[in-house]
Design a binder for these strands. Structure first.
Length: 842
DNA sequence: TTATCTAGCGTTTTT
DNA sequence: CGCTAGATAA
């Protein structure tokens, strides 16, 4: 089991003049402050870089790599640099490139924990019973698999949902616990069955030659632990190790790093304990807190000079985070003296909060308070929970404010992408049962539970794959009716496409057995075959009927209207767009096999269009980003901090709360110049304990904002369109009636809408005018030209609501009866006429 | 087998 | 409210 493949040998053999490199000038050091410089120049031994928000940690990290290379300490392939996200890895590559010129060809070991480990695992797969072409299951596959096992084990699905059990196993994997290491205490409520189920799950994965995300790390750790020779080679190979976002590492990642760094201890971890927000996903802040114990003599460097935010924003963030205990402690400072205070404002309800923020964004876009106009791209709304996003989306859609949601479902997690990938997978390896099962009845082929069961049984009885079983079922007519015909077509199709990937590997013999052409299989292994995989991929999706399944047969009237292809639902055009993007991504890989090995780890969300938009995201996905203007809505107890975190008893409660507080810290420190925190007294909530309207106290974190750095805003009194205004003020929420309030709370409330002159004016006004808010009150530009492009009866398409018919025009809005989404008022420029929407790929 | 209805549920989510 | 999974109806 030699560990290093030919490409390593080749890399190692590349002649390199270390002395020449050592003499390279180091101009890149000039732009560093003393702390950064120390972090960069302390090359040997363990280094912990405590880098606060906005202190230039990526700069320090990338410069350190440049320095390692320039001084000849290591060659590019001898540096192991790990991040958590592909984005961070890409960013680092880019920045190293610009520091070094084009001197660095590539750093094969700069990547995410998962992609680096997957690479290692492919080399040593056999040591844990896998083949090197194993597939990586995503969360969805994981749960489906778990479900099958649960049913097989006769466990009550209701009591132990697959999702939950998969989660438990995931947690164990994060803690580097293999099935044999699960103690009764770890198993918790699920007792000994947990370990058994876990073991069964792992066995099944091996059978399928598959791993889940957790396995990628865990298997490699296992290999290192059980094969010292392999570990040693890598300890020697990776001369320097760098780790980004160290506070987010879990136990498995920690063990992995510790094993690799054990001999030379040239490990540099960068992190910020105050930004540890993934504890619920297995991250251990403890890892960063005890770095100095793990690596005695560690050099600790603190980056505390912040280059991002104004003093008030920094002070507010520091004030909040100061309430946390057990911090490593950092005090951010800045040389800046400019800037305004953090703004705080209370609202009546979530809808009004969204409305106010929308107006504020439009105002800032125009330029307000003597500030220069701010581009929409430079503003962001950061929420605690995804549900909060809807209020903003609804509002922005109706006022025609362009926005983009950051995060959301990952590209490869989308149904259509997974379907397509399953097709590719089954074509490359027809015996891939999971992929075949997915593809079997997508699109609908009239194969239901019964047919699937028949195929499964046949497979089991003959010990063949599902695909071969399906072939057999067709030949022996074990399946009836439409399904039989369709299945035969599918089997035939897979054979044909498969043939195109590597030539005629399989041929059905006269006796129904399958003939395998060894020479061609060998050729494939040697990677010598060539075929146009992009073209083939398109063909597969086309000929399988998959693409077509997103269109419905058009009716005569649709034909009349000129709708050439009619999507089956609102989502269809987007899905086709995604498939198109997938095909485009394919060309980045040499062949389908190469693509498949990387999909689940390396496929990012689609390209960013360059339209100016406000960003909406969760606080979690905001980490690492920065914006000149940041809105932080929903600061209410129960929402932020979340109820869950507060419900945890005792010491755990503190822990949960501290993580929430770090989330607040992350949020505030994203802001460069403007930071606006808001809360609403009433919010439409749908959670376990309470449904419907809830009224909450403003967040306890608001109390922790240092008063001198906060300006409590008085609403401008431009509010219209609030509902049921009369009586609301009197019945004011418990939050207001509630007991002792801090100064800031009190101030915020005093200035709050329900007590303000603006609120009273609103009551009168809304009584007089009803609900509608006059457009001119918001200084809104009415785009009449856009409206006049449509007339009553027009068939239109809207990106979110789908198809509909224009029922009328009110001011700058179109009233549209949507087929699925009901009647809505929508700004004209968010709508296109139906014909234009059918610009569909393939 | 499929389409349609209803009950149940509802933090955060880098890979 | 809006989504999903499961049960029911066609």
């Amino acid at each position: 089991m030699s560990s290093f493949s030919e490409d390593d040998a080749f890399e190692a053999a590349v002649p390199l003049s270390q002395r020449a490199m050592a003499q390279r000038p180091t101009p890149y050091l000039d732009g560093l402050n003393p702390a950064q410089r120390e972090a960069v120049e302390t090359l040997d031994g363990p280094v912990l870089m405590l880098a606060g928000a906005g202190t230039g940690k990526t700069k320090a990290l990338t410069t350190r790599i440049a320095h390692l290379l320039a001084t000849g300490r290591a060659r590019p392939h001898e540096i192991l640099a790990v991040t958590f996200t592909n984005k961070a890895a890409r960013e680092m590559k880019l920045r190293i490139g610009s520091l070094m010129g084009d001197a660095v060809e590539g750093m094969p070991w700069l990547g995410t924990f998962h992609s680096v480990c997957a690479k290692l695992l492919r080399r040593h797969a056999e040591l844990v019973g896998l083949k090197s072409n194993f597939t990586i299951l995503d969360t969805d596959d994981q749960i489906r698999l778990m479900k099958q096992l649960i049913v097989a084990a006769g466990i009550d699905e209701k009591r132990w949902p697959p999702r939950m059990l998969a989660g438990i196993i995931d947690n164990w994997k994060n803690k580097a616990l293999t099935p044999d290491k699960i103690s009764a205490a770890d198993a918790g409520a699920f007792d000994s069955k947990g370990a058994a189920l876990y073991a069964a799950y792992q066995r099944r994965l091996l059978e399928l030659n598959a791993v889940d995300f957790g396995d990628i790390l865990l298997h490699v750790v296992t290999i290192f632990q059980t094969h010292p020779d392999v570990l040693q080679q890598y300890q020697r190979w990776f001369k320097y190790i760098l780790v980004d976002e160290y506070q987010d590492t879990n136990v498995a990642q920690y063990l992995w790093l510790r094993l690799l760094a054990a001999s030379h201890k040239n490990i540099c971890c960068v992190g910020d304990d105050d930004q540890s927000i993934y504890g619920w996903r297995g991250a251990e802040v403890g890892n960063i807190l005890r770095f100095e114990t793990d690596f005695p003599g560690a050099h600790v460097v603190r980056l505390e000079e912040n280059y991002r935010s104004t003093p008030h924003i920094l002070a507010a963030a520091s004030g909040v985070i100061a309430a946390n205990k057990g911090r490593l402690g950092k005090t951010l400072f800045t040389s800046r003296t400019d800037g305004e205070k953090v703004r705080l404002i209370g609202h009546w309800d979530g809808e009004e909060e969204a409305r106010w923020i929308g107006e504020e964004i439009e105002a800032m876009q125009r330029g307000t308070r003597g500030m220069e106009p701010i581009n929409l791209d430079k503003m962001a709304i950061m929420v605690r929970a995804t549900q909060q996003m809807r209020a903003f989306e609804d509002r922005f859609l109706s006022i025609g404010l362009p926005y983009r949601v950051i995060g959301g479902p990952r590209f490869y997690e989308r149904k259509e992408i997974r379907d397509a990938v399953a097709y590719f997978r089954v074509v490359v390896s027809p015996d891939h049962d999971l992929a075949f099962e997915r593809v079997l009845n997508t699109p609908k082929r009239g194969l239901g539970d019964k047919a699937v069961q028949t195929i499964r049984n046949t497979a089991g009885a003959n010990e063949i794959s599902l695909f071969e079983s399906a072939r057999l079922c067709c030949q022996n007519k074990l399946i009836k009716g439409k399904g039989l015909k369709e299945l035969a077509i599918l089997v035939e199709g897979i054979d044909r496409w498969h043939g195109e990937t590597i030539g005629p590997v399989r041929q059905i013999q006269a006796d129904n057995s399958v003939f395998e052409d060894e020479s061609i299989v060998a050729a494939f292994d040697a990677d010598e075959t060539e075929y146009d995989h992009v073209e083939l991929a398109e063909k597969i999706l086309d000929e399988s009927g998959y693409t077509a399944s997103y269109f419905k047969q058009q009716t005569p009237e649709e034909f009349e209207r000129g709708d050439t292809l009619v999507p089956i639902d609102i989502e269809a055009p987007g899905r086709l767009e995604n498939l198109k993007e997938l095909i485009a991504q394919l060309s980045r890989f040499e062949n389908l096999q190469g693509f498949l090995e990387n999909v689940s780890l390396n496929l990012d969300n689609g390209q960013e269009e360059n339209v100016e938009k406000v960003s909406i995201m969760t606080l979690h996905s905001a980490k690492g980003l920065e914006f000149p203007a940041v809105f932080l809505p929903g600061w209410e107890d129960g929402l932020f901090p979340s109820q869950r975190s507060m419900d945890q008893p005792g010491i755990l409660g503190e822990k949960g709360l501290e993580e929430e507080r770090r989330l607040a810290y992350v949020g505030i420190t994203r802001a460069e110049a403007v930071c606006i925190i808001s809360f609403a007294s009433n919010r439409m909530m749908f959670n376990k304990d309470s449904r419907g309207w809830t009224s909450q106290m403003p967040s306890r974190f608001i109390d922790e904002l240092p008063e001198p750095h906060v300006e409590v805003l008085t609403p401008p009194g431009l509010y219209g369109g609030s509902y049921g205004a009369a009586g609301m003020a009197a019945s004011a929420s418990p939050a207001i009636a509630g007991g002792a309030m801090s100064n800031l709370h009190q101030k915020a409330h005093d200035a709050n809408v329900y007590n303000s002159p603006g609120w009273r004016r609103l009551q009168n006004r809304s009584a007089q005018r009803g609900m509608a808010m006059p457009a001119e009150a918001r200084n809104m530009t009415i785009d009449l030209a856009a409206v006049s492009a449509f007339t009553e009866g027009d068939r239109v398409f809207h990106q979110k609501f789908g198809y509909g018919e224009v029922m009328g025009i009110e001011g700058d809005k179109l009233v549209i009866a949507f087929d699925k989404a009901g009647s809505k008022h929508v700004v004209a420029r968010f709508v296109v006429s139906a014909g234009q929407a059918d610009d569909v790929p393939f």
